[in-house]
Every structure is written in C-alpha cells, then in structure tokens.
C-alpha cells in the first residue's frame, strides 16, 4: 500500500516538472509567434488544428491524411530496423567469437559512427531506382543501414559485458561454448541491447524521412515536408514535423514498453 503510494508520488514528482516545462515551452512558442508573426511561426493551436483536420477530416487511406504518410514512413523504418537487428546481432556474435572479425571489421564499424552515413541516401535511392527498386526497398535499406551500426556496437559491448569471474564460473562447470553464450553472454547483453535499440529506432525514422526527400515520392513524411517546403505551406510543415515527432515517440514508447516488460520479468532490473 505504502509502496504503491510512494510509486505514485515518484511518478508525480517526475511528471509535474516535465509538465510545467512543457507548458512553459508552449507559452514561449505563443509569445514568439506573436512577435515574429504567424506567417513565420504558426501558433500551436493552428498547428494542432491543421493536424486535427488532416487526421480526422480524411480517411486514413487518403494522401491528405498525415497518418497515412506516417504509416508509409513507419513501414520503411520498421522493415529497415528489423533487418538491422537481425544482421547487427548476427555480426556482433561473429565479432565476439572470431578474433579475425573483431580485429578487421570492428574498427570499421566504430569508425562508421563518426561519418555522416545519411549522406548516401540520395545515391542509394537513385541506384536502387536504376535497378528497378523504388518505394519501400531504398528507404528500408537506408533506415536499416543507419540503424545497423549502433546495434552491432551495443551487442558487442553487451556480449562482452560479463566480468572474468563469471566466465571462470562457466569454465569450472566445463560449460560448452553454446552454453556460455546462451546462459551468460546473451542474457548479459540485453541490458546493452535496449539503449542501442533506442538510438537505432530514432535513426531509422530519421533515415526513412530523409530517404523520402530525393525520390520525388508522393507519400511519406519526408515527401510531405518537401512538398510543404516547395509550396511554402508553413502550417503543413509544422503539422508534419509534429507527426514525425509523434511517430518517433510512439516507436520509442513501444521499445520502452518491451524493455519495461523484460525488466519486470527480471525482478526490476535489466
């Protein structure tokens, strides 16, 4: 009983300051748009109205509905993310178990985090277009490519996370390599997979949006941003930006839920 109350208390303690700061940000937004004019910065209620009309005024299948565009972008991001997870985990397992891969491939994986990979997006779209692949494949490829690297790095760190006495312990049981992997390395890596996954989710959404820029695509949040930019529809740009933020936040929310579920199953810690 008291524990629940203190839990509630904690939730209020964290939520209240966030709420106050968020309200302050909205007030600030109103103030700025009053000063520089709604043509440059539309008021929050205008943006909300545009978003509302778009989402509720049209069927979900209509290109006028931003949810439709969010769905197109989300599909590319999720397909890319799925490939990134499968490939990233597989390569991380390889790197942890084969010294040659660790020494030859791992430095490049780390170095690739310092370069603006997103710059290849237009080229990937054009090249895959020449091969007859347009729409989802190039976008998913870019999303997946971006999301791949954090997962490899996170998983390699996680699979190596157990300290030496934990490995010694497995050795005293003369556990097989597979047992060490299944009972020690893999469970230990989960705590490192989720932070990496959060980064990858954010990157995959960004990748999908940017990949929609050079295609002249008609659908997707990136295409919507570009159209708004061409025709000077400030409200449309803002509404699309809010939708992009909502998409990112909801995918991150799902990740957080999965993490919380696993955490609960492990008694409250990862």
């Amino acid at each position: 009983m008291t524990r629940e109350q203190s839990g509630l208390r904690r939730a209020v303690d964290t939520a209240f300051p966030v709420f106050v700061v968020a309200v302050a940000a909205v007030v600030l937004w109103y103030a700025i748009s009053a000063i520089i004019g709604t043509a440059l910065l539309p008021r929050p209620d205008q943006v909300a109205a545009t978003l509302g009309t778009s989402v509720f005024g049209w069927p979900v299948t209509s290109p006028r509905n931003l949810l439709y565009h969010a769905g197109v972008t989300a599909e590319a991001a999720l397909v890319g993310l799925a490939f990134a997870i499968v490939l990233g985990v597989a390569i991380a397992v390889g790197i942890v178990h084969f010294r040659v891969l660790d020494r030859s491939l791992m430095p490049w994986v780390i170095a690739s985090q310092t370069i603006p990979i997103l710059a290849i997006a237009p080229m990937v779209v054009v090249v895959l277009g020449n091969l007859g692949l347009s729409g989802l494949p190039p976008k998913a490829a870019i999303s997946g490519y971006l999301a791949f690297f954090p997962i490899v790095v996170g998983m390699v760190t996680g699979l190596r996370a157990p300290d030496s006495i934990q490995f010694d312990l497995m050795r005293t049981y003369s556990a097989s390599g597979q047992q060490v992997f299944a009972k020690l390395r893999l469970p230990a890596s989960v705590a490192f997979l989720f932070p990496a996954l959060r980064v990858s989710v954010a990157l995959s959404v960004m990748g999908a949006i940017v990949a929609e820029l050079p295609t002249g695509a008609q659908a997707g949040l990136g295409a919507r941003l570009l159209a708004g930019s061409y025709y000077g529809q400030t409200l449309m740009i803002w509404a699309t930006l809010v939708m992009a933020a909502l998409l990112s936040a909801s995918l991150l929310g799902v990740t957080a839920l999965a993490e919380a579920g696993l955490r609960a199953w492990r008694g409250g810690r990862l």
Partner: peptide, 12 residues
C-alpha cells in the same frame, strides 16, 4: 527531443 528527427526543421 534528442531522439526526434530534428533534421526535419530544415524547411522551416
């Protein structure tokens, strides 16, 4: 906010 696709503010 760090996890949002902030590049989207480019047209603005």
């Amino acid at each position: 906010i760090s996890a949002m696709p902030i590049v989207g503010v480019a047209p603005i």
